[in-house]
Nucleic acid binder design. Structure first.
Length: 882
DNA sequence: AAGGTCACG
DNA sequence: ACGTACGTGACCTTT
């Protein structure tokens, strides 16, 4: 069966451009529209399996439509340069895909497509037209299906004439009438003012066409009648403008449109230029990439037992050490081998098993030796991974991963494969290419493995001076050497120790939850009248909105929204809804915090050993995984009970928690220099109450709980990079009221307003914002022409220095506390960091000392214009330390 | 693999 | 007019 796909190239390119964030490759070339276009092509090829294929483009700016109506497409914002520069690339892309392309001076892509579909109709050939433009629907017919992009780019809605009938109650031919009446703002087609889609559809269902509507205008009542009469000519012209011209002088030679699939070479080369790494991997084009790029020859010696013995005691000078721990979680992952890059040139590869033989003693000593400096990649992960094998790591002098992260924390990953490209060094294959992924993961033969790890070690040696110089240039050396780098070891220490979890207590909690859940589920099924999967938002939506007929509050891109906010609004309509909310709450506790946590308790230690990611968060915060111990419930009492199972390792010890009070607002007071806000903190006032007093202009005695709540929300908003919409959502007030609040706030806290303006300006000039300790975040989208992208970047510019400085401060405190604890030789241990809180376990006899030491160090970690305040509490478990 | 939901700061 | 609050990770279902 033959099938022709026709793509409106301009339409899809701009859809892709606006749907995706502004990506760019390392040479600054923007690539988001090309990327979106690529995924669209791949999807179409896979799903539609076309035998014929064409992409049509608009040619030139003036089309025959301008001859009739010179304002056509007037008022439309100019195509942003970030998009224009991608058109040549898209044409190159289409060519590399082996797809035909066409343009004709004076015509738009939709005219070409309209003409070709007419020919196809005549020949009875099946066609799919792909566009983002609803006008295209007029082309639908027995053989022609229209695929319109949905919100994003990856999904399309298919329209046959029947589907158009279903959705609009119109025939394809009436689409032009629809446009004639309602117009189209984006093309500057006027239509009839005051007539939108709803009204237009009503008239068309009644009269059929624009002409008939105009002829029967007298039957229409009200003001609309006058408008119709007044704008009759506009309507006729609008219809004409919206009508796709289907007689372009073009002949369809089917054999020229034949599509035989794509070849990897051309596409691979283009993807490499654009740096579409994920697509290279996905299409398995990586292999073909490796021939082209020079991968330096490298001398690898695979060390065996004899050689190891010979090396003992006189290890050659080493420049870099690569330790390969495979798997996501280094606490359970495998150490498979290490490679040494030697100063004299060449590399040594040592398989993991070899470290267990007696001859490995000297090597193990060297790995552990604090006085033998090493450059590594991800020391923290290596230290943890080796720890479970009984191997100590010491003397790391430079960590390439942390340096790469600091230099650009927004990069999604910092693999060595990428870093080689980023810094124009000889390529190293991606781990996925060597090991495979998912079910296909396999450690390769010893030669391949040795070569791969050696390449990494050699690359580390070359990256070190480059990254070090970059850090110096960005004035980040102190941030690196005095904060992030020492912190890595502190984190490794905390993780190796782990935290004790009372499994029995957890199981008991699980039993109680299970019973409560069972009861709830039974009741819900009864009230709903049927059994269904309560965990499925889709099935739940069907029950609530279709079967029970509750009002739809909000939609998601796939269907009805059933989140807690929606359910709370629905609760008054039907009693079952609050049971569902209840179920959700308990089910979350059960699956994530009881079952999930139980799975993470190690048999050998009876503890959970979280893994802190130090190189993920764009703001400089840590994140915690396997399990995440930074989101243990606290806000609701039912959940908070989970904290009771986190207990000290030893009898008679206590849990001690110390948290910064309002650290982000204190940071804001400092960096904005706002006198009023500084004053509030200097006098140790309740900052939300103080905000309420100043914003509402009342004395403290007049601030009620509601005013304080609103002031608190405004303060949160300020920290997040405020918008009236966001605040209105949060406070459930109108946007206007929210805007007034904000204005009132800024009128009082002038320094904060100045900061917000200033930091956005700074982001525009420099392309980045910084924290107090010089941590950077780049914001390439701050100058985007797309409103959403730009606004997001602006809010990020306001938020990142605040959140990031708070992160700097607690990290600094952790490093200092670790030092102090070592110096004082305490037995107490630092266990957790939860963004503004540190958790310790302490022997009772050290309680007084720690109660004093911890807040003292935290409060003095960094001197600001306002005091830092820390609250300390302790108890038999984490719950009691409140 | 993606989307929805919800836990935390 | 545009459509969002900032930063994360885990679990479940659906594709």
């Amino acid at each position: 069966m033959e099938k022709l796909i026709l793509i409106d190239g301009n339409s899809i390119a701009s859809r892709a451009f606006y749907a995706l964030p502004l990506l760019s490759n390392s040479s600054g070339l923007h690539t988001n529209a090309v990327y979106g276009f690529t995924t669209m092509l791949l999807k179409l090829i896979e799903e539609e399996k076309p035998t014929h294929f064409l992409v049509a483009f608009d040619a030139g700016k003036v089309t025959f439509r301008h001859a009739d109506y010179k304002e056509y497409k007037g008022g439309r914002a100019k195509t942003p340069p970030e998009l224009s520069e991608q058109f040549p690339l898209i044409r190159e892309l289409v060519q590399s895909f082996g797809i035909a392309q066409f343009e004709l001076s004076g015509y738009e892509a939709d005219d070409i497509i309209g003409t070709l579909t007419r020919h196809a109709d005549e020949k009875g050939l099946n066609v799919v037209v792909v566009s983002g433009d609803k006008d295209m629907l007029q082309l639908a017919s027995e053989h022609v299906t229209i695929a319109l992009t949905r919100k994003g780019i990856s999904e399309v809605d298919l329209f046959t004439p029947a589907a158009i009938q279903d959705k609009y109650g119109l025939t394809p031919g009436q689409i032009t009438d629809l446009k004639g009446l309602m117009g189209d703002a984006s093309d500057n087609i006027p239509g009839i003012p005051g007539v939108g889609e709803k009204t237009a559809l009503k008239f068309l269902h009644q009269f059929g066409t624009v002409e008939e509507v105009l002829a029967n205008a007298d039957e229409i009542s009200g003001k609309i009648k006058d408008k119709i009469k007044e704008h009759a000519d506009d309507a006729r012209m609008s219809k004409e403008l919206a009508t796709i011209f289907r007689d372009v002088p073009v002949e369809m030679k089917l054999d020229e449109l034949q599509y035989a699939g794509y070849e990897g070479t051309a596409l691979g080369a283009l993807f490499r230029k654009l740096e579409f790494k994920s697509l290279l991997d996905k299409l398995d084009l990586t292999a073909s990439s490796q021939e082209g790029e020079e991968q330096e020859a490298i001398e690898v010696e695979i060390v065996d037992r004899d050689r190891l013995g010979a090396l003992a005691g006189r290890l050659p000078e080493v420049e870099a050490l690569h330790i390969e721990i495979v798997g996501e979680n280094p606490h359970v992952s495998d150490f498979i081998g290490l490679a040494l890059s030697l100063k004299q040139g060449g590399c040594l590869f040592v398989p993991a098993a070899l470290l267990d033989v007696p001859e490995a003693g000297a090597l193990r000593d060297w790995i552990a030796d604090e006085k033998s400096p090493k450059t590594v990649y991800d020391m923290h992960r290596a230290e943890v991974g080796l720890y479970w094998k009984g191997i100590a790591l010491g003397g790391v002098a430079f960590d390439v991963l942390i340096a790469a992260y600091l230099l650009d924390p927004t990069e999604s990953t910092h693999t060595l494969n990428e870093l080689a490209g980023r810094y124009k060094l000889p390529a190293v294959p991606a781990d996925e290419a060597v090991f495979g992924k998912g079910a296909k993961f396999k450690v390769p033969d010893i030669d391949t493995l040795g070569l791969h790890l050696s390449r990494k070690a050699a690359l580390l040696a070359r990256l070190k001076p480059i990254l070090n110089a970059e850090l110096e240039k960005n004035e980040m050396s102190r941030l690196y050497y005095e904060l992030e780098f020492p912190l890595a070891r502190v984190l490794a220490g905390m993780e190796k120790k782990g935290i004790r979890v009372d499994a029995g207590g957890l199981r008991q909690l699980g039993g109680e939850l299970g019973q409560a859940i069972e009861k709830l589920v039974e009741g819900i099924y009864k009230e709903a009248g049927s059994e269904f999967n309560l965990n499925s938002p889709k099935q739940l939506g069907d029950i609530l909105f279709d079967k029970l007929g509750l009002p739809i509050i909000k939609k998601t891109k796939t269907g009805y929204s059933t989140d807690a906010e929606v359910l709370e609004k629905l609760a008054p309509y039907n009693g079952v809804v609050s049971s569902i909310l209840n179920y959700r709450q308990l089910a979350k506790l059960q699956s994530t915090y009881v079952e999930g946590l139980l799975k993470e308790i190690r048999r050998d230690t009876g503890k959970v050993h979280t893994y802190y990611q130090q190189t993920i968060a764009a703001t400089g915060r840590l994140s915690s995984q396997f399990p995440n111990l930074q989101n243990i419930p606290i806000r609701l009492e039912e959940g908070r009970k989970i904290r009771k199972v986190f207990v000290p390792e030893e009898q008679g010890w206590l849990m001690l928690a110390a948290d910064y009070s309002q650290i982000e607002l204190r940071v804001l007071a400092h960096i904005s220099g706002d006198e009023r806000m500084k004053d509030a903190f200097q006098n140790d006032m309740d900052v939300h109450t103080k905000t309420a007093m100043d914003v509402f202009g009342v004395p403290e005695s007049a601030v009620d709980s509601n005013m304080r709540r609103q002031a608190k929300a405004v303060n949160f908003g300020i920290v997040y990079g405020i918008s009236d919409y966001g605040l209105s959502q949060n406070l459930n007030i109108t946007r206007k009221e929210a805007a007034q609040f904000i204005e009132q706030y800024f009128a009082v806290f002038e320094g904060v307003r100045r900061y917000m303006d200033e930091i956005v300006k700074q982001a525009r000039t420099n392309g980045y914002v910084s924290t107090l300790l010089a941590r950077r975040r780049y914001l390439p989208e701050i100058n985007a022409s797309n409103f959403n992208l730009r606004s997001f970047a602006e809010r990020t510019a306001m938020n990142s220095p605040i959140q990031g400085t708070a992160a700097d401060i607690i990290k600094l405190a952790m490093v200092q506390i670790d030092e102090r604890m070592k110096r004082e030789r305490v037995r107490s241990r630092m266990l957790l960091q939860v963004h503004d809180e540190l958790v310790f376990e302490v022997p009772e006899e050290e309680l007084e000392l720690m109660k004093q030491l911890v807040p003292e160090v935290m409060e003095s970690a960094l001197a600001l214009d306002v005091p830092l305040k820390v609250d300390v509490s302790y108890g038999d478990n984490w719950y009691e330390a409140k």
